[in-house]
Design a protein around this nucleic acid. Structure first.
Lengths: 243, 243
DNA sequence: CCAAAAGTGTTTTGGGTACACCCATGA
DNA sequence: TCATGGGTGTACCCAAAACACTTTTGG
């Protein structure tokens, strides 16, 4: 089933069902091969990049709206989600980028088009297993792709700041978050978990200390051994308890 | 100077200058005699209590709007402010309490009155020196008063949850916040500072450990001694460095 | 002199880091 | 047997907690 069918068409929709002035932006983190990535939309042929986002329906819970937006872009439900800040700067009121997007999409619009207003953005970050995600572009975009956070394209409006704030919160919560549970496979080696933490923190961690801390946390269960085919002792596999 | 004059009159205002659907709510903390207090509005004769709040002007920064709201209720600028969460539950859409308030105030209103809509609330907590504050009620209220957080009246909608979330964030940030700098006089004894922390945390702290930790933090400067008139050694006075 | 609160020194504890060493494995 | 990465034991450091003791004050 495609959820495109359920979505409103940008040109024809009545936006009456949506709260004006409020948008939801998502920093969706994934991890692959020692790279921290986020999902970024590129609007059609405009060279304008943005965080995935959406709007709040008038009879919809804010959190439900966020989960809906995430589902539309990733196909996933049950995503780890964290509301971390609401951005209300006036520089968000600049409608030029969105006008440009609408023009490139050949969407006819009036000055008071729903998308051409000042939005206060309630922002969330999400942690997803990159292998379970099938990124889906929205109607105005021709791509929704993973970008390494070290080499992000320039993002529209204050989206760069939103990303950086999200990363700061992710780092602060790295131990509470159980990032491994959301960004790694169900089972993983201690080295893989440490690589993940080091990538998020942009910082080398002490190997034995990390090992001990994780084991003492009581959140890990040791499974069998993993044969790596590499020339060294085979590591144990671990998984996170509960869920 | 009264800022009432600058304010819109609820019955006649054009609300056109305000963003619809977005409200700002403030949990304003004060401290006096071992009691943690917050400012609560009581709507006129309705027995309905609420957190101080306001709305965002269309050409106003979100943070500026919050400072404006705080100034209107407390007369203070330069307030320690922290945005901690945005509340978007559907139970906020219940307009009955506000309808009741408007009726008691004999404000004529239509169903689509600005105040009778669903608001997503961007919430801040503030720390203020209770002695510098002159609480000012708004037009719909007959009081804006300090309430001990242990004996709050029932608050409208989800305001109780907002308060509790604010308190949780305050507790988590108690060391980063330098609460003493904002909630106490400029100079204070170590015992007074410890009492403040214990009140906020609802928890007894180790006296000597607290003393040492504060001294080692390097944020305190020891001033002269204070004569308490009490039958014990006179304590030093301290103040926070920088500002 | 005593009670009460403030200040300080000493000891203990526990988490974190550093380092050493052994283990398993494939080339 | 060597290089490599994984696992664990030991030593050390530092901050927080626990406890003991001294100091100052008014009654």
């Amino acid at each position: 089933m495609s959820n495109k069918d359920e979505r409103n068409s940008i040109s024809e929709v009545t936006w009456d069902d949506y709260m004006p002035g409020i948008s939801i932006d998502c920093v969706i983190f994934g991890y692959h091969k020692k790279e921290l990535k986020i999902l970024v939309l590129e609007y059609k042929k405009s060279g304008i990049f943005a965080l995935p986002g959406g709007f709040l329906r008038k009879n919809e819970e804010l959190k439900d709206a966020t989960e809906r937006v995430l589902f539309e872009r990733t196909g996933l439900s049950d995503i780890y989600l964290n509301q971390f800040h609401t951005f209300g700067s006036l520089k968000r009121a600049d409608t030029k980028p969105m006008q440009s997007v609408l023009k490139k999409n050949q969407v006819p619009f009036e000055e008071n088009h729903f998308l051409l207003q000042r939005f206060v953005s309630v922002s969330y970050y999400a942690l997803v297993d990159i292998k379970r995600v099938e990124p889906v572009a929205d109607e105005l975009s021709d791509s929704c792709k993973w970008y390494d956070t070290d080499t992000l394209p320039p993002l529209m409006l204050d989206h760069r700041e939103i990303f950086e704030t999200a990363l700061k919160h992710l780092r602060n919560n790295i131990n509470r978050n159980v990032v491994g549970m959301n960004l790694l496979d169900e089972s993983f080696t201690m080295g893989e978990l440490q690589n993940l933490h080091e990538t998020i923190l942009s910082e080398k961690l002490n190997r034995t200390g990390f090992h001990r801390k994780m084991m003492l946390s009581g959140r890990l269960k040791r499974l069998g051994k993993k044969k790596t085919g590499k020339a060294h002792r085979s590591p144990f596999l671990y998984k996170f308890l509960d869920a």
